[in-house]
Amino acid sequence: MDLVIENISKDFDEKRVVDSVSFSVGRGEIVAIVGPNGSGKSTIIKTIAGIHSQTSGMISIDGTDIRKMDPVDLAKMIGYVPQHFTYTLYSTVFETVLLGRRQHIRWSVSDEELSRVQYALDSFEMGEMAGKYMDQLSGGERQKVFIARALAQDPRVFVFDEPTSALDIRYQIEVMETMRTLTWDRGTSMIIAVHDLNLAYRYADTVLVLNNGKMAGYGKPYEILTPDCIRRVYGVDSFTIENEFGKFIIPVRARIPAE
């Protein structure tokens, strides 16, 4: 096992936001974290990304506790894509992607770093936009730049906080396909918080369902994300359909009050 999360809890101002969550991600594997707003998805993602530390529990990569690692080394292991991204008006696309190489750059930028930036941009077919300014892009293109930035980090584990939230359906499929292929090809792991249950169905190997910070299900998407589970967690009635493209979940109405 590669990335192991054991009994992670996180308190904010005495309030327990994540409560004893455990799961693991192997190489080439994608884990989707789903759950209602405020269920603790982002908190888990940020804890793994090294943005804040857990109150208790342990996160380890290949047996090493990440809290005992140098932040600089951790930065080379874990690449994070935020839900809301920030950029400045005067940065270009490739400069933004280059930031992913921060821990490999001392002062000047070597050809190798630039090649990695080129590769990351090309992976998302954004090569021709390298010289554009961030505010000249559409929202979806910007999000792809941020995903490319995480790819340039060349990490062992990608952690994504709703990476497709600003993307239209075409971009969503493109980005997810690219990320799945990269995960397979490079033997990386990916943890992704998503709202779209069908994305979890389609791309995740394992799904973790969170409700009020607690684990409400963990396992294969088709087995876990059942209409019954969705009713329990979201308070939404739904049904599944299956056709030649796979299995899909269709939410139909909110139950009042939510259970």
């Binding site: 990304a49 932040p71 951790l74 930065a75 991204f85 920030t86 950029y87 930031l99 921060r102």
Partner: peptide
């Protein structure tokens, strides 16, 4: 300078990049 550059991508991304 490089840390300041990284900060332009937001606090969270900068932290993920190993910057205190």
């Amino acid at each position: 300078a490089w840390d300041l550059n990284a900060l332009s991508a937001g606090d969270d991304v900068a932290k993920n990049l190993g910057i205190n």
